[in-house]
Design a protein around this nucleic acid. Structure first.
Lengths: 234, 234, 234, 234
DNA sequence: AATGAATGAGAATTCATTCAT
DNA sequence: GATGAATGAATTCTCATTCAT
């Protein structure tokens, strides 16, 4: 972490010159909204500070009263996305007792946030690596928080005996990628399936499996053949 | 498509000044190898032509004899990745008759290419949008070719009655994202599960489902509740 | 002199918006003290108005109620230095009759002011040229006043027959540079000689000469050789 | 020393991207000549890279092939000045045996280099402090080399019994400041005395003293009074 | 009088691209 | 074909100065 970055972050937060907290909030929201729009359309590097300022209706110089460097803006934008997840998903499952409904509702809510923040979600995939290591860490930590929520509802199902014993980490990302996939592959999916159907179909596939009874009958043996095959071939 | 881009592409190909086809091939390979390495590490925008040239052992000026603009290099790099998929997956299932094994082997092979080209796969997610619309189209077309392979093996299973009737587009991307997920989330997964186990677990989850008998018993009703709930809530 | 500068100066003074004379005095003193400190440490260009304001305990905006531009602050700072000379030196020789003691005391006092305002003296050398021509003139006029004091004590000595006939302008600056040299070369001198010794040695050298009797014997001839040599060579 | 500076200097030298040594030499000379002119007129901070490039007849970007940052240019400019001293003074006294003539010739040569590099000498006084500590050190080391030359000729005179025992450090700077003074106070001196006369007068004053016989008679006692006076007064 | 947020011109620096050799 | 010096447009960031409150 070089000096600049050290100066830029205090407890995972971007630092500012301005005292008035409400004003900082408001200005940052302006900047982040403008930047999200532009970054999504043109990417981080193709977007200039001047453009962000113009879009936000302020002067280029003012941006630097609320942010120490351009990369801070990216951090704020990405934070907004991942914090969207962390806030909205728990809200969606609040009060729901049934473990399986909680699980479904989690995926459902996740997909809907992603749908709402679609461009920003794609942006997160594109641009997280553009962040310095430290800032990237901040984003990944928030992703881990989301993972924890998903892990929690999975645990609920397992404790209720609704899910068979399995590797939770793998399942977490299969569920997460249902949600992220909607944004990542929206160029393909959006014209072929509605969000509602996408959620239902994805859940059904993963929860009940895609195989027919006949398919289930041969699964185990075929998986064994795959493994042997791989051992031999690889 | 502006003039530059028009000039840059003829039948989806990058244009060059040099006549000698073999030399073009060799130089491009040098450049692409160097660029892949650097783009993966530092990203497209943070990598300079000078660095690529140095890494490739040639002069900066020479790069422009084999490529019209920097973005062409990105296109070549990404093409290499997606063409890796298009070539290696079919090779892996060549000669296999059993539809379910073909399906598994497809995912297996996909995961292994992705594992091999991990950095480049992530690069594809990061950088495809950095391409101009036309170049992006080229990459997405190659992705569609890969999709077609996956769709084909799914069809095989469906025709054999091994997979229940379902939305193929959704399933395609669930399978594809198993593979891509290995690269995208390698920062999380790699330390927690081996590639072999990841493939087996992912396949098992998606093919046979993650629910227990008890879970399967309540799935249908719970999905209905989710749908009602959503209808009401949204 | 452009409009701005014309507006900025009336009779060698910096102009202000504020009426209350005492307040102006007080505020300016605050600003000058802060600026002297910062200019000495970081130089004129590396010091920002914000920093000066902060150091002075006021707001950046307020500075501009007491000063028309940043350069005015530099003028005020440098004026303070040269006026330090103009005031303190005469005070030191007040009442002294003996011409030679007056001369010595002048140099002595000059060296001691310079020692006290060491950083600011160096600042004057560094930054006088950063002033616009008109402001620079103001400073140089004050330097001429100091010169006049020195010239006066020299005259006193000459009239008393204590100093041989010579070019007064040259001697003035030899004396002045004894004082200034203490600040300009303090990085070298300060660790090697005390101020008291420096003053005594410098005066002794210049007043009585550095040559021994033997040296004095050959001086005239050697100077002639130098002149011939130069004529020939150059 | 931060990374940038570390990268900028290898053995007190400014680093470049270009290999061809002769070309580097030529381009740097162009840049330094242009910068010297502009820095002298407008100062370091008021001079832009664009202006330097234009004055040098090259493009702004090219400057950065021969220099890592703007401050490097200042270093090169100041090095040229101090190295002018280090080279020309020894050349002037080469082959001269007579100790006193060597001393005179040293001051004479010093004054003449300073006269030739007048603007740059003043620049050195103004701008050395604008350098980072490390680069400043480089310049000061060269100044010490010049000091050593002066110290050496003084020693020669002392060994020959031509100069009475005294503090050499003080005398060094009295001699050095004769030379520097010519540039520093040229705005005053140049119109009042010729360089030849300035050198002769300065040397005569310092070597033989400015006091008349009568003055010499009272010097010792007056100096004592000064010292007592100071003790009392301070 | 005082504040400090806001402005916007300007500067250093980078780097894709060109071109003389 | 190959080189690498040269170009200059574009970008981030700073900071003197203004102005609404």
């Amino acid at each position: 972490m070089n000096e600049k970055e050290e100066a830029s972050m205090i407890d995972s937060e971007v630092v500012t010159e301005v005292e008035d907290v409400a004003l900082v909030e408001r200005r940052r929201a302006q900047i982040v909204a403008a930047a999200t729009k532009l970054f999504s359309k043109k990417g981080f590097y193709r977007t200039t500070i001047k453009e962000i300022a113009k879009q936000a209706g302020i002067s280029p110089g003012l941006v630097y009263l609320y942010v120490r460097e351009k990369e801070d803006i990216l951090l704020l934008v990405l934070l907004q996305v991942v914090e969207g997840y962390v806030k909205e998903i728990p809200k969606a499952i609040e009060g729901i007792e049934d473990p399986m409904l909680r699980l479904m509702k989690t995926v459902d809510a996740y997909c809907r946030v992603v749908d709402r923040l679609s461009a920003a979600t794609v942006l997160a995939y594109r641009s997280t690596k553009s962040l310095s290591v430290n800032r990237r860490q901040i984003i990944q930590n928030r992703e881990l928080e989301t993972n924890a929520i998903v892990a929690d509802v999975i645990d609920g199902c397992m404790e209720a005996g609704l899910i068979r014993p399995l590797n939770v980490d793998v399942l977490i990302y299969q569920l997460v990628l249902i949600a992220h996939g909607w944004a990542l592959k929206s160029w393909y999916l959006r014209s072929r399936v509605s969000l509602d159907d996408y959620i239902a179909a994805s859940l059904e596939n993963l929860l009940t499996g895609v195989l027919s009874d006949k398919g289930n009958g041969t699964f185990e043996a075929t998986l064994q053949r795959l493994k042997n095959n791989t051992d031999t071939g690889g």
